[in-house]
């Protein structure tokens, strides 16, 4: 039951019900991790066919399947009002842009599109960290999806581990490991904990329950 009888809070909670399962966080983490592994292919000069590196695209499939088989049966059916669904539209646009940028960076890295690749490498990590953290925090505040704060923070931490702290030089490891893989792993762990909690609080036993007229 809701702890606070605040209709506004209840509305926000209902709007982002779908994000409680942690699957979106796991998806973000996997995307970051895949981008990191892809970067490491280049740094370590591993000879992997280019189409294998596009396997990141199939991450969408398990996410959608997880939503269909895990989340929807447990949450039940909900149809949002068009006006109140405005925040969901912002989230969808944000996800689309994030995924699109990831694909762009991936393609630029694989096919060594120098203009884009060069532009990416020339941005100081601290600026990138600040930009990512600000963007994620702004979107989290705007639409009330608070797990995006965690995603932004984890992604930003990666940049600090790499350049300012210089761990890539100290341990002689590719920078992509720190910038992408470690934050990706942190976000996956966070998403998994949320998923476990969700499975515990939303058992399947309620699926067969139905309304009985008095």
């Amino acid at each position: 039951m809701y702890k606070k009888l605040d209709p506004k809070q209840i509305e926000k909670s209902v709007l982002f019900l779908q994000s409680r399962d942690g699957i979106l966080d796991i998806f973000f983490g996997l995307t970051l991790g895949a981008a990191g592994i892809n970067g490491m292919y280049t740094s370590l000069e591993w000879n992997i066919p280019w189409y294998i590196r596009f396997l990141i695209l199939i991450l969408l499939v398990p996410m959608l399947l997880a939503k269909y088989f895990i989340t929807t049966p447990r949450i039940g059916y909900i149809k949002m009002q068009p006006v109140k669904g405005g925040r969901l539209i912002i989230l969808k646009i944000f996800l689309l842009i994030s995924f699109g940028l990831t694909i762009l960076m991936l393609a630029a890295s694989i096919f060594k599109v120098q203009f884009i690749h060069g532009q990416m490498l020339s941005i100081p990590p601290v600026i990138l960290f600040g930009a990512i953290l600000l963007l994620m925090s702004f979107v989290a505040w705007l639409i009330g999806l608070y797990s995006l704060y965690v995603v932004g923070l984890a992604a930003g931490i990666g940049f600090f581990l790499d350049k300012p702290l210089g761990l890539d030089t100290i341990f002689n490891l590719p920078g992509d490991l720190f910038i992408f893989c470690i934050p990706g792993a942190l976000i996956i762990i966070y998403g998994t904990i949320r998923l476990a909690r969700f499975l515990k609080t939303h058992p399947l036993q309620n699926v067969k329950a139905d309304f009985e007229h008095e």
Binding site: Y2, P7, I10, E11, G76, Y77, K79, A209, D210
Partner: peptide, 21 residues
């Protein structure tokens, strides 16, 4: 109050949804 707050946010929900919420 909680039921109406939920129904005020959503256009339509099913019984399972309300049970969980």
């Amino acid at each position: 109050i909680v039921l109406l707050a939920i129904l005020n946010a959503a256009e339509q929900v099913d019984f399972t949804f309300l049970l969980n919420e």
